[in-house]
Write a protein that binds this DNA or RNA. Sequence first.
DNA 1: TTTCAATAAAGAAAATTTTCTTTAAATTAT
DNA 2: ATAATTTAAAGAAAATTTTCTTTATTGAAA
Lengths: 217, 217
Amino acid sequence: MNETRKYKTKKQAPEPTLKRLPGYLYYLEQVKEEGIINISAPTIGKELELDPTQVVKDLAVTGVKGKPRVGYNTYELIHALEDFLGFNKINEAFLVGAGNLGSALMAYQEHQSLGLKILAAFDVDEAKIGQTIGGIHILEYNKLFHLSGRLNVKIGILTTPNHVAQDVAEDLVNCGIKAIWNFTSAKLTLPEKIIVQNTSMSSYAAVLLRRLNDSDL
Amino acid sequence: MNETRKYKTKKQAPEPTLKRLPGYLYYLEQVKEEGIINISAPTIGKELELDPTQVVKDLAVTGVKGKPRVGYNTYELIHALEDFLGFNKINEAFLVGAGNLGSALMAYQEHQSLGLKILAAFDVDEAKIGQTIGGIHILEYNKLFHLSGRLNVKIGILTTPNHVAQDVAEDLVNCGIKAIWNFTSAKLTLPEKIIVQNTSMSSYAAVLLRRLNDSDL
DNA sequence: TTTCAATAAAGAAAATTTTCTTTAAATTAT
DNA sequence: ATAATTTAAAGAAAATTTTCTTTATTGAAA
């Protein structure tokens, strides 16, 4: 038994579960549109091609209880999921690196449904500074340090070239950023407390291409 | 024992391994730049914060053999990885949905290092048709059917709105597409043989936001 | 040479995640 | 009311992935 963790030992949800949760949320929103009030785990599982017990276990992390013979309350479940994931509050973020991928993410409106609000973007390229993409201003990189002092932004979106990623990440940490969404290929070495979410396109491409090459001999 | 698979039972690499491989590749390219000819698994592991035996197991899928006391040949390993992942050949793709995310991916040059070549993009929006982004032409959606007859494109990149994703995916399959890189939130129901790689930003956001909310109580 | 140390490879163990079973609860039909 | 059926929840088993051990090979040093 871990004495130091006697309280607050709500063992955090496993990553595979977390990754599936937005899928449930998206599906449930469709279901709600159809006016369905209650939905069972087997029904959800059938639609999303998941084991029904897996669905039950996944949804259990939100704390919502389903009723036997009835299922879950659609509305309650949606809210619990949004709540659990933090999608229904405004999660402010800074973005660094307004290149192709960066400006894409700025323009990508869908972030809003994740409650993600990019307050400002930063770049060192004079040509980009002053521009506005998707309603987000691109500011001079150095402004990051001033702005972060006034605002309490916790999320940094990293879309710089790989070779400056580590330096920028360290700057972000010094600016009080708690979590970094890393879109670069660089392996970031940062204090343990910092949450790093690596989202490298190449990982996905790797799986896709390999499976494809596997399939045709 | 599975008699039907006596030959060709090169059990395919596990997905976690595949997802790590591009990381090795990126790191090894840096190492090569520094003129380092041989590198050991423990060294790689230290840099990438991975267990050394995990590194050995991961790299073993490429078939490259390392030498005790010496390590792997950097050059050989890079090529084996590129080969294994299919990054060093041209993987032609069509993209459907030239919205924010779609045009971002078109502009995103880094795909080239994955050997991914987007031959053309398709959209139904008159305003977008005829435009060129990142050197890729946006064509009328219906042209997809003509073009696919002449070309032998196997990869489809799906960046449409969610509500048309299923229909477009089916069209792509009918056009001979073998693998779909799905950036939408829709759950695609397609023939089993079709390889679907779901890459939903919201899954990543979910993990990031949850971990962040976990950390500050 | 001969010994020693570092390391890849192969196999075993541990941890994690998914799937399977059982149990209990709740609604509907008889 | 009562029984039957569906379903969530909890626990067990299985599968997968990661980490740990052991073994054997290779190059360097004595």
